[in-house]
Write a protein that binds this DNA or RNA. Structure first.
Lengths: 346, 346
DNA sequence: TTGAAAGCGCTAACAG
DNA sequence: CTGTTAGCGCTTTCAA
């Protein structure tokens, strides 16, 4: 089925040995200029393409990298994948994407699948339900290249690309405070995720700086990271039906944010009059929302690119990489009406 | 790096030949029950996994399928990819995704890349700029498995999964007409795409049925399929500055739709008072838009699944497939305020 | 029922 | 500078 030429075909046609052809093709120096030219021209003529599978078998590497994310259909991740691919393809790697759907179980299955596919490295963003990261620890300790991005494992010392979650949440919260909101609720995913913890810390720091009170009831988690609409609905409604409901909400992930606005409106709350909203999301259409949504936007594309660059560098480094970097990127706070921003950046 | 066991290890440990082990593992009949059990148990114990690369080399197939779409960060495609993966993984294939960014050139490069990666088949949705489909013709004529979905090549007889674009556009248009709109503009991508042509036909049929006039100036194309915000902006503004501007717009793809609403609002037009809008889009948040957007939504996930099922069936069929099917799926019209729907389905 | 050996496409050590 | 050969992990004749 759709056969292509092999090195053997060239050898036969040119009356050479396969090794000579191989050398010519690989620009070896121990080869006659004549022969080399001959081979190269012929290869060009028949449009020879080396068989990557044979190469993989030989080199013991697949030239592919595995990606573990919760969902492709998530603005942040689809943009990140865009960045991942842009680098990977230029470096001759291909990308195998797997989705956890926020399940730890599926995450493990995906990693195992990717390993059995002999990926040369892993780009991972943990699922919201993942608590046990021993598979990564084990792999990492064996020297297998892994780069975490966004949702990193705090206990594994490898390359990481993260948002400055603390500052992002701090600034978003402070912007709410500056707009006059004082009863700010915090809507988040599971606290398994380090990003959730950091965002919460940044949030609290802003409240503290401004001497604001934070009733425990204003802290609400969705264990499915927003994948379950009903879960978000319960949480948001309970929040708004509190004796003293919040006058603003900071929502810390994509799904949560989009569900939150839809639920609030569906329940008849006016935004920002009844309750203001700032959300972490990479949606391209937040501007078209009713009201236009103030968002914390991550440099997803760039994060994907950086993660991939680091991963490929690790894969290709001859000696084992020992000094790992943690790149911290800044989020962008885009002020719009949903939070009555004082000084609209955008 | 991260070595796993091979058949040879098992053979050595059990004092058997590799071929015996191979047979045991593959449940061959020409093998002693004792030996078989021994091998199986040992393989289980050491958690043996066959090397898929070696298998690929042997079988001359990679167990991977190539996907060609314009963008991952597009609601329709990210949902379709979701469907693709769900089937592919269950069938032991992995998925390599490539993006054309609506460029014919990149599309060709991607296809070639995928072929050099020895994918066993291709799942493709043409780029908006693709006119020359000879690469697919050639592959198809050689018996290489290809399934088109959504944006199909009209001249290539293979499996296809498409929306009933005519009916979808017809119904959307008729819904506008029923709401009292009479000057309806048609905003579309390049006419290279068959889906664009079909959608336009459906649109025209509805106008005709109701005896409405269609001035040529109401037909506007964006050659970059909505990838260029500026292009959409020019087009939309020109449309609205016509001596007799349209009172409604039907937008026929995802990007176009989301840009359109943002541009209209940015230019101060009220929707639907100044101009109504119905758009093809698979956005999950159309409901949260201002105003809530009436959309034509495609069964993206399902289309991805069906396409993948057909592709895998084609790949695995012993004899060459000759009778190709074209599956036609219905879109869902979700009525909301942007078009003042008479009978809201949703 | 089992083993030996060839071969998938390619590279690389070793000879010459 | 070029050819021979072995080997990557696995399947599959062919012999035994």
């Amino acid at each position: 089925m759709f056969q292509s030429y092999t090195i053997k075909d060239i050898a036969k046609a040119l009356n050479l040995s396969t090794s000579t052809v191989s050398r010519a093709l690989n620009g070896s120096h121990e080869i006659g200029a004549e022969t080399k030219k001959l081979v190269l021209e012929y290869a060009e003529k028949i449009n020879y393409r080396p068989n990557p599978i044979a190469l993989s078998l030989k080199e013991q590497k697949s030239h592919s990298i595995g990606v573990v994310v919760c969902e492709v259909a998530n603005n942040y991740f689809s943009q990140a994948i865009n960045g991942i691919e842009s680098i990977a393809y230029n470096s001759g790697y291909h990308v195998i994407i797997t989705q956890t759907h926020e399940s730890a179980e599926r995450e493990l299955a995906n990693v195992q699948h990717l390993l059995s596919r002999q990926v040369d490295g892993l780009l991972v963003s943990l699922s919201a339900q993942t608590v046990n990261t021993s598979i990564y620890e084990e792999l990492h300790s064996k020297g297998f290249p892994i780069v975490f991005f966004d949702r990193i494992a705090h206990n594994i010392q490898t390359h990481r690309i993260v948002l400055d979650n603390f500052v992002a949440a701090f600034e978003a919260t402070e912007s709410l405070i500056n707009s006059g909101f004082t009863r700010i609720a915090h809507l988040t995913s599971t606290s398994n995720l380090l990003i959730s913890q950091e965002r919460f810390k940044g949030f609290m720091a802003a409240l503290q700086k401004h001497g604001l009170n934070f009733p425990p009831a204003y802290f609400r988690q969705c264990n499915h990271g927003g994948m379950l609409m009903t879960e978000v609905e319960t949480v948001v409604k309970e929040l708004m039906e509190l004796p003293v409901p919040p006058d603003a909400i900071l929502s810390t992930n994509d799904r949560l944010t989009t569900h939150c606005i839809s639920i609030l409106k569906g329940s008849g709350y006016k935004i920002p009059e009844d309750v203001a909203l700032i959300g972490f999301t990479n949606s391209d259409v937040a501007e078209s929302f009713d009201p236009p949504l103030t968002v914390v936007r991550q440099p997803a594309f760039q994060m994907g690119q950086m993660a991939t660059e680091l991963l490929i560098k690790t894969i290709e480094s001859k000696q084992r990489v020992e000094n790992y970097t943690t790149e911290v990127l800044a989020a962008e706070l885009i002020c719009r009406e949903s939070s009555q921003c004082i000084s609209p950046i955008n």
